[in-house]
Design a protein around this nucleic acid. Sequence first.
RNA 1: AGAGUGGGUCGGGCGACCGCUGGUCCGCCAGAAGUGGGCUGGAGGAAAGUCCGAGCAGGACAGGGCACGGUGGUGGCUAACGGCCACCCGGGGCGACCCGCGGGAAAGUGCCACAGAAAAUACACAGCCGAUGAUUUCGGCUUGCCGGAACACAGGCAACGGUGAAAUGGUGCGGUAAGAGCGCACCGCGGCGCCGGUGACGGCGCCGGCAGGGCAAACCCCACCGCCUGCAAGACCAAGUAGCUGGCUACUCGGCCCGAGUGUGAGUCCGCCGUCCUUUUGGCGGACUCUGCCAGCGGGUAGGUCGCUUCACGCACAUAUUAGGGCAUAAGCCCAAACUCAAUAGGUGCGGGAGAGCCGACUGGCAACAGUUGGUCAAGAUAAAUGGUCGCCGUCCGCCGUUACCGGCGGAAUACAGAACUCGGCUUACGGACCCGCUCUUUUU
RNA 2: GGGGACGUGGUGUAACGGGAGCACACCGCGGUCGCAUCGCGGGAAUGAGGGUUCGAUUCCCUUCGUCUCCA
Length: 131
Amino acid sequence: MKQFSFPKEKRLVNNRQFKAVLARGRRLSNGLLTLYMAENDCGYPRLGVSVSKSCGNAVVRNRLKRLLREAFRQSQDSIPAGFDYLLMVSPQWLKKSRTGKAARLPTFEQVKGSFLALVQELTRRDASQRE
RNA sequence: AGAGUGGGUCGGGCGACCGCUGGUCCGCCAGAAGUGGGCUGGAGGAAAGUCCGAGCAGGACAGGGCACGGUGGUGGCUAACGGCCACCCGGGGCGACCCGCGGGAAAGUGCCACAGAAAAUACACAGCCGAUGAUUUCGGCUUGCCGGAACACAGGCAACGGUGAAAUGGUGCGGUAAGAGCGCACCGCGGCGCCGGUGACGGCGCCGGCAGGGCAAACCCCACCGCCUGCAAGACCAAGUAGCUGGCUACUCGGCCCGAGUGUGAGUCCGCCGUCCUUUUGGCGGACUCUGCCAGCGGGUAGGUCGCUUCACGCACAUAUUAGGGCAUAAGCCCAAACUCAAUAGGUGCGGGAGAGCCGACUGGCAACAGUUGGUCAAGAUAAAUGGUCGCCGUCCGCCGUUACCGGCGGAAUACAGAACUCGGCUUACGGACCCGCUCUUUUU
RNA sequence: GGGGACGUGGUGUAACGGGAGCACACCGCGGUCGCAUCGCGGGAAUGAGGGUUCGAUUCCCUUCGUCUCCA
């Protein structure tokens, strides 16, 4: 299997899957992102992305979703498999980083770093809870 | 050179690595699924707002009218439009040029706050005059006349009236007791005639002393246009809930959905026969289809396929199906062997058609545009692709050196902004770059 | 994607084309030993731009925002 591919099977694709993750998943958030994690039975990680309208116009929302997808794509081998991941962007972070008229968007490094940190923290909590 | 004005074009580029999505081909595999790879298409001038106009789809529908909505100078262009072009009128600017929902106010209704004498009716009110006729009084005297004054009774007048957005033509001269289009000159206004223009309208001449306020983005009138809803339209498949009412309509069986059977009826087609022939009509026989339909109300599902992304046609090549099979619950998508006559289907190549496409040239036209001809081109996702990171160049900003040019460092989702059935417009947003035309001012020749 | 409705002080709402009001909230003063109730006074808005009109919250156009509906 190829290293960093991201076909449609690795995404959450309909409303039922999203609702399942929101209902069963554990949630954690830092200032920028909110992550929901829930186990699945596929044997590989899957990603869902939700960016609300209050984050900006269509260009901004597209950019944010691409950044999130890219972060997942590059790090999908270093996170636990068999989980569904649902990522959201908080509009408060964008408002806070407002410089002048337009909100400064986060860089790719920021997004990837905070995604990995959230995954790590949630997995650590999960392990300690089982003990 | 400076200031300004109108129009058009572009709206970052190159490379590396890693990805996403449509199409197509190849390898592994018996084949598909799966998987790996090759080639190729993959955001905009506004994709935006959804303000108009169409195509397309569903519903309704004889025709006409009413109601409702829209448009509004004139002529043209366009598939159509509230769009575009040219012209007219009004306003602004020295000018190039810009702006204007720019029909009707003697068809009717309504409104015009406050202020003001008065707000649509032409007069009252305040005011002016005292010529003319009275009254009172003073002076002169020729004793009933002249001159003056007062009063504002009769009478005359519409200029003048802290206002107001708007006040019954304006300015000047004459005129008068005071005045007044009362008279005259110019301007404005109205009517008539002639000329020019397709027309909106313009020009000239004559006549009339002046008819008459504003608002129709108030109701309204006139002319013209318009059925309603929108791709979440609509068609189909799967899963699934719960039916009810009304109208027309054969029966039997099974408890219903639904299915089966029988016969009748209806429709279509074919053959035969009769009336002299044709049209027509009737009868007989055979084959096929239907056996429930329509309208209204209510309930359930939110999964998928098509619509959906340019393709009629011809030729050539290889292929598939009609005849096997795979994936999928199904719609649908796809594959292989043998046969190759035909039909059908898609593919590739060549030709070529269509596009209310785009660009260039020519012809016609002031122009919008039309015709001819040549070239060019093709995104189709559906928790929703068209990207991420890095390097170099370009652009912009800041700092420093440098006063020009330039160099260094740092920064910048590098302006606005992301297709969702498809076109034609309009409107709005936009850092900047380039091109063309024109106007004014200054300087030089 | 496509329809529809609506924007008035901090909040909820009125207003035939002519003075932008009401209630709650807020601030100040009085009152009370203090607080509340109460009385008096005050500040604070027509989403933005343009047009029609003598004059727009109201009528028209553009724009921004909010809510809602659909197979």
